[in-house]
Structures are given as structure tokens and as C-alpha cells.
Design a protein around this nucleic acid. Structure first.
Length: 511
DNA sequence: GTTCTCCACCTCC
DNA sequence: ATCGGACACATTCGG
DNA sequence: CCGAATGTGTCCGATGGAGGTGGAGAAC
């Protein structure tokens, strides 16, 4: 198949609003493509590369200049070969060599193909369709059941492979995708809820468990061999030898556990998230800290000794696996349908320094890869009134609007505002329009795409916590900041100061 | 040539 | 990770 | 009973901070 056909359908999909229509257009291409090109085409049309990251970013892309050809001649396979060559180029001088290969590829592409390649390589493909729509497209193209496609994708994390299976073997082949030990599946995710009481009310009898501020880890044990995978299915067995070792103490031949790993202090209280991450990924030989000092907390089980548990209700899963796993490897939990009890458990978890709780419906199956309402997470939020120091012009669908706010608080010692982070979240279209006008009025000067403003506009910002920062002058940054609303009743002198921010940080340290 | 610093990229949340 | 907007589908409402 | 209004499930896109790795180029 010509690469141009892929680029063309991408731009058609981008201008189509209806999701069903997008899926139909994608399906038409899938039907036409040779099975040998199918995985690559599925990958490109979901905005990803089969090679994964290949070391080409915005800087390289903008530096590459090549005249476009008039008539398409690149095959999908040609592009794949070129990108594979780029991905496999490493070592001294590799940056230049990668740019050369990219220039050649661009020089063989039409204008439209160049644009598609640029979007694809920069990760900025915006066609309003990614994996979700591709699942539907595969179902339409090969006349198979959409739910089976979705399930196969979640169980394998390999949508291109699923497409090939659907094309060659139909529903029967899709059903062959099963949970396998050492074949990680996409983890189930949680939606957000406002309070434990609200969560219990909507879910009924539930498990309420600590939400730990660490990293998700899916651990597979089979006859003494342990392998571990992150939320995105990256294997981290080698980085977490100690954690894997601790799972070997589970006294059963074969088990797949859904867990969280977190760094705990000597007092048992959790250390900051940054500390957990530091202990991940240490690939330096002899690094004392790497992989050490992480505690594992299992909260679910996907497979036990030949039996897949994911289609059992949560309560039955728990009854099966809980007796098998040592108590000190299990997350603290409560089974209840009482809102008051759940609330007290949540408050205790927060007081112990944890993020909050997750409330899970006792009768829910394990929906791999889905973010359903059967799991609800609750964490406390802080709120501050901060001052906008600057705003960045938005891109994509926010082009032409001032979008990303630089947030600051007054620092008495330095007699100036210090920046605490940025946010673009929580803004409605109406607020975006308003703030674009407002901040252009307050503009003092520009620096690239940053518009600096007089520090006068107060904004109410919610955030999950304060983290230590080496980027910002106050030494602190807000985690997951989002706008709650503009405070037109407040002047900058009425806003919160850096002292308040530090107080929140210190309160979090000691509980 | 070796070391140091910066930047781009990537992945956790 | 968070959030708002958009679309598809199910359910309820107004007549 | 029908079409409109409303609610729910999902997906998509726009971007946040920390920290680690590896390459490029400057400093020595």
C-alpha cells in the first residue's frame, strides 16, 4: 500500500466529526491494505510507531528541510524501513545520521505525506481518532465483534497484532488472546469521585483500600521466576530485583498480582513520590539505592495456578487470592457498604500520609485497560488563590487562545512573586476566551510564545500537593494544578503567599 | 582526548 | 496525571 | 407513541513536574 493512502485517510478522518464515520473511513483503508502492511498501518493511524520512540523530536523535525515530490511513490514498507533504520542508529554521530535518513525520507514524500510524517514523529497527530476508534474500525473492516477486538487489545497491549488476527482469523482468532503468565495485560484504571460516601452510595458493597502514591506494578510469578511490568507494560524486572524477590515468598506456583510499589520511610510513612521514582530505573551497576527500599502492596489478582480470575467479581477474586499472599504484601483494605466507615478509613489513610483511597464495587469484574466507574479514587485537594504571572499561547485546538497559565505567589523575603508551576486544566471555552482578552490587556512584554503580564489577576487553583522543585525559585512546585475559577473579587495583595504553600508542604511531611 | 554541562527524549505520576 | 468538549447510546420527559 | 431533553460511558486532546538516560558540544 502507498504511504499516501494512509496520509490521505488521516487528513480525511481529521476533518470528519462523526466518530462512526471516522471509523468507517479507517476501516476502508484496513480492508484495502495487504496483511503484511497491516500492523504498520494500524500503528501509524493510531499515532504511534512500531519502533516506539526513535530519537526524533521537535528540534530534529524542524531542522530537517527537504523539497516535496509531486507524485506519491513511497510504500508503507519503505517508510517502515527508514524509521527502523533511524531507530537502530545509535552511538557517536547518531544524531546527524538519523537526521540524514529522515531528510532522505522526507525528500521522497509528497507535501501531504511530509505533514503526516511530521505529525506522527512529533507525536502530534491530531485526527480525533486513536486506539479507541481503531478498535471500531477493525471490527467494521473485518466484520468481527468490537468487544472481542477491545478485549484482545487490552489483554495483549498490541492493537496491530490484534488487527492481523482479526483479518486472518476473525472472531475465533481474537478469542485466542488470553491472559498468559509473563504476558502482561493493561491494568484496570479508576475514575475520580468526590468523597468516599458518594462512592459507596453509587457502588454499594465495596472494597475500600489505601491509595498509595507510588507506581503501578503487575507482577507475574511462575515456579520461582518473577517478572514485573509497569502500567504501560514496560518490563522492569531488572530494575526491581528486591521487589521481585519479595514476591517469591508467595507460596503458590503461579500467580499474577496487581500491585503498587512505594518507598516507605523508617517510620513506615510513605516518602514523596519522587523518592519512589528515584529508586526505579537505576541502571548504574553498583547503585546502592536502585530498586531498594521499595515496598510492594498487592491489591488484586488476575490469575492463580491455571485459573484466570479477571472475569470473576472482585469479592470472589479476593476470597481466592487473599489467603495465598502474605498479609504484609497486601494493601490495607476494608470491605463495607457503610459510608461512615468508609469515610473514617479514608481519613485514617490520609492521616497516615497516603494519597487517599480507592473504592471498588464488590461485584465488578476486572476490566483490563478500562477506566470504569466500578473503581473510584478519592484524594483530598488543596486550594489556593494565586497570581497569574504570564500566559502561553495554546496550540492545536487552543491555537489563537492564551492557554497555559504561569502561577505565582508573593515571596516577602525577596519582595517579588515566585513561580510555582503552570496549568492549562479546568478552563472552559468561555474562560479561555475571557482570559485571552484579559491577559492581553495586562501584557507587559513577550518572550517567544510566552506573554508576560502585570501580576494582578488572581485565580483560584486546586492541586494535589506540593513537591520540592529544582526548577522554580521558591523550591516548591504544585502537583496537578488546575483552575477552579477566577477571583475577580480579589487583588494580588489578597492572594496567598509562598509561606502558605510551604506550610502545606510541611504539613504533608509530618501528617 | 577526557570531562563536564546542557538538551532532547522518555516515563512515572 | 487532570480536565473539558464531543459523540453515541440509553433513559426519561413533554405532549 | 414519538421526538426532545437529559444522563452516562468513552474517547480524545492539551498540556503539568520530577528524574533518569544518552548524545552533542564546550571546556579543559
Amino acid at each position: 500500500m502507498l504511504f499516501a493512502d494512509v496520509a490521505t485517510v488521516s487528513s480525511e478522518v481529521a476533518t470528519t466529526r462523526s466518530r462512526r464515520e471516522k471509523a468507517r473511513k479507517l476501516a476502508a483503508v484496513l480492508e484495502a491494505v495487504d496483511p503484511s502492511d497491516l500492523p504498520v498501518v494500524v500503528s501509524y493511524l493510531t499515532g504511534s510507531l512500531p519502533q516506539g520512540r526513535i530519537g526524533i523530536g521537535y528540534a530534529t523535525l524542524t531542522a530537517v528541510a527537504a523539497a516535496a515530490v509531486a507524485a506519491p511513490r513511497l510504500g508503507v514498507g519503505d517508510v517502515d524501513v527508514a524509521l527502523t533504520a533511524i531507530a537502530s542508529t545509535t552511538g557517536p554521530g547518531s544524531g546527524r545520521r538519523r537526521a540524514e535518513i529522515l531528510t532522505q525520507l522526507m525528500g521522497a514524500a509528497t507535501e501531504r505525506e511530509q505533514g503526516f510524517l511530521r505529525d506522527l514523529l512529533s507525536g502530534g497527530l491530531r485526527q480525533g481518532a486513536l486506539e479507541g476508534l481503531m478498535v471500531d474500525a477493525i471490527a467494521v473492516a473485518f466484520d468481527v465483534d468490537g468487544d472481542r477486538v477491545r478485549r484482545a487489545s487490552m489483554l495483549s497491549g498490541d492493537l496491530p497484532g490484534v488487527a492481523v488476527a482479526a483479518a486472518l482469523g476473525g472472531d475465533a482468532q481474537l478469542d485466542a488472546f488470553r491472559l498468559r503468565v509473563f504476558g502482561p495485560i493493561l491494568p484496570m484504571l479508576a475514575s475520580t469521585s468526590g468523597s468516599p460516601a458518594a462512592a459507596i452510595e453509587s457502588l454499594g458493597p465495596s472494597i475500600v483500600e489505601w491509595k498509595l502514591d507510588g507506581a503501578r506494578l503487575q507482577v507475574h510469578l511462575d515456579h520461582g521466576v518473577v517478572r514485573a511490568f509497569t502500567r504501560s507494560l514496560r518490563e522492569v524486572t531488572g530494575e526491581l530485583a528486591d521487589v521481585c524477590e519479595s514476591v517469591r515468598s508467595v507460596d503458590t506456583p503461579t500467580i499474577v498480582l496487581d500491585t503498587e510499589v512505594v518507598a516507605l520511610g523508617s517510620d513506615g510513612r510513605p516518602l514523596p513520590f519522587q523518592e519512589t521514582m528515584k529508586r526505579f530505573g537505576g541502571t548504574h551497576p553498583g547503585d546502592q539505592d536502585s530498586g531498594r527500599g521499595l515496598s510492594l502492596f498487592a491489591f488484586d489478582c488476575l490469575h492463580l495456578d491455571g485459573n484466570d480470575l479477571i472475569d470473576l467479581p472482585l469479592g470472589e477474586r479476593l476470597a481466592v487470592w487473599s489467603p495465598v499472599v502474605p498479609a504484609d504484601l497486601q494493601v490495607p483494605r476494608l470491605v463495607t457498604d457503610d459510608a461512615g466507615e468508609a469515610t473514617r478509613f479514608y481519613e485514617a489513610a490520609v492521616a497516615a500520609g497516603h494519597e487517599g483511597v480507592v473504592v471498588k464495587a464488590l461485584d465488578s469484574t476486572y476490566r483490563a485497560g478500562r477506566r470504569g466507574s466500578e473503581w473510584l479514587k478519592i484524594k483530598p485537594a488543596h486550594t489556593l488563590d494565586l497570581v497569574v504571572l504570564a500566559v502561553e499561547w495554546g496550540s492545536g485546538r487552543r491555537r489563537g487562545l492564551l492557554s497555559n497559565l504561569h502561577l505565582g505567589a508573593y515571596d516577602r523575603d525577596r519582595d517579588r512573586f515566585v513561580m510555582l508551576g503552570k496549568t492549562f486544566k479546568g478552563l472552559t471555552d468561555e474562560m479561555l476566551a475571557w482570559q485571552t482578552e484579559r491577559f492581553l490587556e495586562l501584557e507587559t512584554h513577550r518572550d517567544g510564545h510566552v506573554v508576560h503580564v502585570r501580576p494582578e489577576q488572581v485565580v483560584e487553583v486546586a492541586f494535589d500537593g506540593v513537591q520540592t522543585s529544582h526548577r522554580y525559585p521558591g523550591g516548591v512546585a504544585l502537583r496537578f494544578a488546575r483552575v477552579k475559577g477566577y477571583r475577580e473579587d480579589k487583588a494580588a495583595v489578597d492572594a496567598d503567599t509562598i509561606e502558605t504553600v510551604r506550610a502545606i508542604r510541611d504539613a504533608g511531611r509530618t501528617g
